[in-house]
Amino acid sequence: MIVPQFGVGTFRLTGDTVIHSVKTALEVGYRAVDTAQIYANEAEVGQAIHESQVNRADIFLTTKIWTENYAADKLIPSLKDSLIKLRTDAVNLSLIHWPAPALGVNIPELMGHLLEAKKQGLTEYIGVSNFNIELTQQAIDSIGAEQIATNQIELSPYLQNERLATYLKQQNIDVTSYMTLAYGKVLNDPILSDIAAQHQASVAQVTLAWALQKGYAVIPSSTKPAHLMSNLKAQEIRLSQDEMQLIATLDRNGREVNPSELAPAWDL
């Protein structure tokens, strides 16, 4: 995998909250941080990394380009602005945040601009987020699968996205799972609770372990140091085949994020 399997997310975290979360995460062992232009917290994430005891070279930093910056004359300047906020010469990964077909986005053109940003040394790797199979194929056809490090998608026990995940694996594109805990909805699930009890673990740990065992990268966020440390321990849990099959039965297409003007027609 290109993308580290365990990172910390910063969605919906701003101000001192995100600074504290990222600094704590780095302190307890995280080495991947995920942000985005639309999160309006890149400057705080940059500050947290700068003030941490961890060298920038040891951190895998991801940001995502927002739709208003997709035009040819905006994408690269917007990424340069992100780099200033993040206090870095280059990010490790830049993603197209949403395919936004309703806005008439030209995927081949867009991927070409992103590839140019990579060629200019502004980002080590490039990829996409929230792309379905059809649009990922368009991206592949335009710049080649070897240029696409990951597709970051909503994925949880309640939204297992098997068709898309299988397709991405066939293309050798990393799957990054966001919203892995389904906004906390999985935390009271009786099947997951039973499995967690068997492992003397939390439901969050078991859910993250499930995603890791499927070969996905995860980027859970938390404002609480105890949860940040607890989440990391998911890497130590090994679920049995029976337990993995039980979790497979929980799939119910339970999507939490689906902005009509930005989302594609999802694969079912």
Rank of each mutant, 00 (worst) to 15 (best):
Q152T: 12
D194I: 06
L239Y: 07
S21L: 08
L192G: 05
V18T: 10
I143D: 04
S82I: 11
Q53K: 15
L212S: 00
L155R: 10
L208F: 01
K214E: 06
A234M: 02
K169R: 14
V206R: 02
D242A: 13
Q5N: 12
Q53S: 14
N132K: 15
V257G: 00
Y178G: 02
E51A: 15
S78T: 06
P259S: 01
T88C: 11
E51N: 14
E256H: 08
T207L: 03
F131P: 09
K23V: 05
S78F: 04
T123V: 11
I143S: 09
K23A: 00
D16I: 04
A226P: 08
Q171C: 08
K74Q: 15
Y30T: 05
F11A: 07
I96V: 07
A196T: 01
T136W: 05
I19W: 09
A196C: 01
L95N: 02
E68S: 12
T223K: 15
A182T: 13
Q160K: 10
H199A: 07
A197I: 01
T10E: 02
S230A: 12
V8D: 01
L83A: 00
V91G: 00
K74S: 11
I107L: 00
G254Q: 05
N188T: 13
D58I: 02
S78R: 06
P225W: 01
K214T: 08
N132M: 11
H227P: 07
L192D: 08
L95D: 07
M229V: 10
Q198A: 06
A265D: 14
G46R: 00
I49W: 07
L268T: 10
V206K: 01
G184N: 10
L114G: 10
Y70C: 03
S222G: 08
H97T: 03
E109A: 13
G15F: 15
G144P: 11
G9L: 05
Q147A: 12
V18L: 04
E109T: 08
S240T: 12
Q138G: 07
L61T: 15
N161F: 04
A102K: 15
W210R: 02
E68G: 03
S202T: 13
K214F: 03
A36N: 09
A204E: 00
K74I: 14
F6C: 11
T176I: 05
I76L: 04
P4W: 14
Q53Y: 11
D242Q: 11
T136F: 09
V28A: 01
Q147K: 08
L246T: 12
V206W: 01
P99R: 10
A48M: 06
V218Q: 06
T166L: 06
L79Y: 03
N130Q: 09
L159S: 05
I247P: 01
E162D: 12
A100Q: 06
L164G: 05
Q37H: 12
Q200G: 13
V91F: 02
P4T: 02
M1P: 05
T67M: 11
E162F: 09
P108N: 03
A145P: 00
